Simulated assay, not measured.
Amino acid sequence: MVATNKMKSKSTEGQAERRYAQVCMEKELDFWARCLAEPPMAPDVTEDRTCQQLAKMFENCLSRAKKTTLHCSSVLVPEKLTRKMAHEVLRLASCEPCGLRGCIFYIHLELEKGCKQLERITYDSSVVPTFELTLVFKQDGTAWPSLRDFFMGSCFAPTFRHVLKLSPGFRLVKKKLYSTSAGTVIEEC
């Protein structure tokens, strides 16, 4: 009798374990079904905020350069150029040891005569730089100056300064400072 009693308890224990395992598996499947049914989550908020800050930093650089280096009345920037540049910069900085904090930016403008340096920016001065990024804005060469600009600049208002229009394309040059074998990465966008 004891033997049959043990057999019953073993079989009831086995059934309980199987039911428990089945319930766990069903819960797990329900969890994954809900995860797959939910829409994908929005991009990381901090990454988006960093992207906005970078874009604003590039716009501020152009604004300062307009008055000091470029000597023009206005700079026309394509609609999403600075945002696109910020995304590319974040992508290039993602594989660096200190990320974006270890970056030094050199911002240039490519002119017909060559490149003109607009500004040098250290993203975080408390971190030892690990890489340099040279961002090269390109001047839009397809735009012809309007007749009004021509006449205003030559005859009627000798102090009038020209309008600079930027191209939607740009160049990024990345140089690692901590590795001699890494070399330089050049990307045309």
Rank of each mutant, 00 (worst) to 15 (best):
V2N: 10
T4Y: 01
T4D: 11
K8G: 04
S9R: 15
S11F: 09
G14Q: 11
G14T: 01
Q15A: 12
A16R: 12
R19I: 06
A21I: 01
V23Q: 15
M25N: 13
K27Y: 05
E28N: 14
L29K: 06
D30K: 14
W32G: 00
A33K: 11
R34T: 05
E38D: 15
P40W: 02
P40I: 06
P40Y: 02
A42K: 07
P43E: 08
P43F: 07
D44V: 06
T46R: 02
E47K: 15
R49E: 10
K56V: 00
M57T: 11
A65H: 06
L76I: 15
V77C: 12
P78D: 04
R83Y: 08
M85L: 13
M85I: 15
R91C: 08
L92M: 15
L92Q: 11
A93T: 06
A93N: 03
S94C: 08
E96Q: 14
E96W: 03
C98F: 11
G99I: 03
G99W: 04
I104E: 12
I107G: 00
I107E: 03
L111H: 04
E112T: 09
C115N: 06
C115A: 09
Q117D: 03
E119V: 07
E119W: 05
R120K: 14
T122M: 03
Y123K: 03
S126K: 15
V127G: 04
P129C: 03
P129W: 01
E132W: 00
E132K: 07
L133V: 13
T134R: 05
Q139S: 01
T142A: 14
P145M: 10
S146Q: 01
R148S: 07
D149M: 12
F151D: 00
F151H: 07
G153L: 03
C155P: 00
F156N: 00
F156V: 14
L164Q: 10
R171N: 08
V173W: 02
K175R: 15
Y178R: 12
S179M: 11
I186K: 13
E188Y: 14
